[in-house]
Amino acid sequence: MRVLYIDTSSDYLYSGIVVDDKLVSSIKKKYEKDLSKEALPKIIELFDEANITPKDLDKIIVVNGPGSFTGIRIGITIAKTIAWALNINITPISGLTAMAISSNTNTYKMPLIDARRGYVYGAIYDKDNNKVIEDSHIELKELLDKSKDLDIEVITNNDLEINIKKESYDPDILKIVKHFETSDGINPHLVNPIYLKKTEAEEKAGL
């Protein structure tokens, strides 16, 4: 099984190639504004390093949100185009799920991404990475209220004011890929970002 993993939902490019249960090449690097310029060249380097070509891939796993709207679209467009060209499927996954899977804590897990103005993209997972509270765009206060009776650890790379145990997010790409190993995935045309948030124009228009 040869799998390409892509996550561009933050300022970082997190990507890797897994061949037969081994992570053979990977990158975790901050790009910010250069992501659209650098993402594809870096993914090409991963193929070279892994000594395989895209044609050898069986599947692509891509993070479809939440996070930076533009960032998500960069990773998804690359994934969709490769998968369409090679006639393979994509397994789109939540970046919050990827955060939960990467954590080794034995408590409940609360992955958080800052969505500004007191809001976060967040969810709650149990220690086995089952969803307890679905991915949502929610006021941080409200999410903390909902989870106040749980023994919980927050996973985030953002500077959020929280008084509970926190760990930073360092994706365990191999673990994420293995978690979705049995997923058949879907046709690349059907893969789209899950923004969890309407555009301002739609909100104002009440659409």
């Binding site: 659209s36 679209r73 467009t77 969709k80 060209a85």
Partner: peptide, 14 residues
């Protein structure tokens, strides 16, 4: 950006 990523990726794959 969307057209750009698609074009670059096609250029690479093919």
């Amino acid at each position: 950006l969307v057209g750009m990523q698609a074009a670059k990726t096609l250029s690479y794959i093919y």
